[in-house]
Structure formats: C-alpha cells, structure tokens
Amino acid sequence: MADALIVVVLLLVAASATAAVAQRDPARQALVLSFLGTLLAALFTVLQAPDVGLSQLAVGSALTPLLIMLCVRKIRRRGRSKEDAR
C-alpha cells in the first residue's frame, strides 16, 4: 500500500515534466520548473533518498529560478533599450 504514494508522485512528476517541456515562454517555464523541482524532492523522499532530496530542494527551489529569471530580465532589458535607441 505504500506503493500507492510512489505511484501518485511519479504520475505527478510525469505530468509536470511534460508541462514544463510544453511551455514556450522562458518565464512561464521557470515557474513550472520551480514546481517540478519541489515535486522531485518529494519523490526522492518517498523513495527513501533524503540526501538527494535535500540537494534538489536547495538548488531547485530558489537558485535555479533566480538564474533563469535573471537571464529573462537581461534579454528583456536589451530588447527594450534597442527599441528606445531606434
């Protein structure tokens, strides 16, 4: 019966990974990736691997979204300044 929990989390991981790939805009993809990161940490905990889950939480909850959103901001700023200079 404890397998039911593993199946539930695995189905959610499959669905959210597909959703992450199906997003087109990087900012929206960053949101889905943040959710996927936390979900993966839960999956690793359910599979009795808390060290890996802790690494996943540390990196995927704040660091990866921050890196992606900073890149998105840089690209938007460059686009905006090129329009202003024209």
């Binding site: 936390t38 939480l57 909850s61 921050l66």
Partner: peptide, 25 residues
Amino acid sequence: PAYVDLALLLALLGPVGTLVFARLL
C-alpha cells in the same frame, strides 16, 4: 525524524523562490 530537515529547508527556501518571481516578474 531525520526527514524533518527537508521540511525545514523547504519552509525557508520556498518563500524565497516565490519572492524571486514576485520581484523579477
């Protein structure tokens, strides 16, 4: 009881992730 550390980290860093999106979006 060792798994409680995971919840501690999520309680600390989860809101930080939301603040990232709130500021940069």
